[in-house]
């Protein structure tokens, strides 16, 4: 395990004993799986106490075969003075997609969260303006979920198996 991983993990375990459910080093940087109820406190701690002030990116992920861990949010933080990067993941079940917003911590999260809502349907509680952003407002589903095929469902001349998955 890398030095950065151990440093962040011990700090998180000291402050939030039950927050980290899994951690490890991916190819490029450490990844921590965080319980949803502690997510905002962990992000605030990382930002204010440990210098991870820059939210590089965040996005939703859908794992249709993972039962009550079907949906995940990925946050990627960067500490600019020390040039350290970490990744957080928070898993949740399909019928519990409410996540507290992190816009008070990172202004940049505003549109990122709108994108995650638009494509996966995460409901960010407390978000100042949670509307669809790239798709049209009338759309009634969340297109990046795995159950939606790329091709128009009305066509029978094209099957997904010919085009990849």
């Amino acid at each position: 395990m890398s030095e950065l991983h151990d440093k962040v993990l011990s700090s998180l375990q000291n402050h939030f004993p039950e927050a980290v459910t899994h951690s490890g080093d991916e190819r490029d940087f450490p990844v921590f799986h965080i319980e949803k109820k502690d997510l905002m406190a962990v992000l605030a701690h990382l930002k204010n106490e440990m210098g991870f002030t820059f939210l590089t990116t965040m996005c939703g992920i859908h794992f249709p075969e993972q039962g009550d861990q079907e949906f995940a949010l990925m946050y990627q933080l960067h500490s600019l003075p020390t040039n350290e990067r970490i990744r957080l993941k928070c898993f949740m079940a399909k019928n519990h997609l409410e996540v507290p917003t992190c816009t008070p911590l990172f202004a940049t999260a505003n549109w990122m969260e709108r994108e995650a809502f638009d494509f996966y349907g995460f409901k960010f509680t407390g978000h100042p303006d949670l509307r669809r952003i790239l798709n049209m407002d009338e759309m009634n589903y969340h297109p990046l979920r795995k159950e939606y095929a790329l091709e128009d469902a009305g066509r029978d001349d094209k099957e997904d198996k010919y085009f990849g998955r």
Binding site: F119, R132, I133, L134, N135, M136, P143, F163, G164, R165
Partner: peptide, 13 residues
Amino acid sequence: GYIHRAFEKLAER
């Protein structure tokens, strides 16, 4: 979103 082309979805296929 006027020229959104669903790149992230396209890339999955």
